[in-house]
């Protein structure tokens, strides 16, 4: 197993390099440039040129890229074009809120979705099954921004129960309870979408397993149905579920761009939107870079989990 992991990590390096090349050039393809985004309308053309020259934006793109790479290899993400703060610190301060939000959302989603998916599969075509597939379809279909705004309207504006956004009350005590209140709505909004698709994956994956011969064997041993389903069948249904979880983990970092924006959650997603708005190349590149690493690592994690879940899968 260890050599396999090492090999996968080594392969990840050129992939990561490729990702940075692509994203650097694509980010630069966007119309406008950082200087035009933050300089006041009455600045002269000469001022703008001066600023561009100072930021190195007049150099050919590959020179800019190599300069960025050179800094990165020294562990330096550079400085933000819009706030002049070190990008490394900016991004780091955003990671924790996003982890908190997405971690909560994923946890709620899985705790709810997995048992429901299993139940739905074991009672295929019952009213319960129709109900859950119907609700899961709704969960997938309702856009997060719409659900988010709807919930803000109901719970914050009308009922005045929960805050409209942010992570802590301004001037508040910053207690955990306060954060929890702020967390509730955005986490719920994110969880609906994730849970909706998870229910469907669990259900279909279980349905495929439920007709297998070895379940009949398990029943013929006198095992109770609960164990037949939740031990013998579920363990076999795990592979596709692990795949989905592997795809969900990058969300922990990539965050929920739209939802964070709506709820003014100070996470990476919100930072992404702000950096795109100001064409803040160094910040965008740093976020891309971290997201790429997360995707690669969670893919590797999923592959390792496969072999844990299914003994027939072995890596050499």
């Amino acid at each position: 197993m260890f050599p396999y992991i090492m090999r996968r990590l080594l392969i990840a390096i050129p992939v990561l390099f490729g990702v940075t090349v692509f994203s650097f050039f694509i980010v630069n393809l966007a119309p406008g440039n950082p200087v035009e985004m933050f300089i006041s309308p009455d600045a002269t053309q000469a001022d703008i040129e001066l600023k561009k020259e100072a930021l190195g934006l007049n150099d050919p793109i590959y020179v800019q890229y190599l300069r960025w790479m050179q800094n990165l290899l020294q562990g330096d993400f550079g400085y933000s074009f819009s706030t002049y703060a070190p990008v490394g610190e900016m991004v780091a301060s955003r990671v924790l809120p996003t982890l908190l939000l997405m971690g909560t959302a994923l946890l709620i989603a899985y705790i709810v979705a997995i048992p429901i998916g299993v139940l739905s599969a074991t009672r295929q075509y019952s009213w319960l099954d129709y109900l859950t597939t119907g609700f899961s379809f709704m969960g997938i279909s309702i856009p997060n921004f719409f659900l988010g705004l709807g919930l803000i309207y109901i719970f914050s504006v009308q009922l005045n129960l929960l805050p409209t956004g942010g992570m802590n009350t301004l001037g508040g005590d910053g207690s955990f309870g306060d954060t929890l209140k702020h967390l509730l709505l955005p986490a719920f909004v994110l969880a609906t979408g994730i849970a909706g698709s998870m229910v469907r994956y669990v259900r279909s994956s279980m349905l495929e397993i439920l007709g297998q011969d070895y379940l009949r064997t398990a029943r013929s041993k006198g095992l109770r149905e609960f164990l037949v389903v939740n031990k013998h069948a579920f363990r076999n249904a795990l592979i596709p579920i692990i795949t989905v979880i592997g795809m969900d983990i990058p969300l922990l970092i990539g965050g929920a761009v739209v939802t964070e924006q709506i709820f003014q959650w100070p996470g990476l997603g919100q930072l992404t939107i702000q950096s795109i708005g100001s064409r803040d190349y160094p910040t965008l590149m740093a976020i891309n870079f971290i997201a790429a690493i997360t995707v690669l690592l969670s893919n590797l994690l999923a592959d390792i989990l496969y072999s844990v879940a299914d003994p027939r899968i072995k890596y050499n």
């Binding site: 011969d213 070895y214 009949r216 041993k221 006198g222 095992l223 013998h232 363990r235 076999n236 879940a309």
Partner: peptide, 19 residues
């Protein structure tokens, strides 16, 4: 089941749980 009456099946390849 499995105690007083037990059963073996046609498909040995799929009758045991692979995991």
């Amino acid at each position: 089941r499995g105690n007083e009456i037990s059963m073996i099946f046609q498909e040995p390849m799929t009758s045991l749980n692979p995991v």
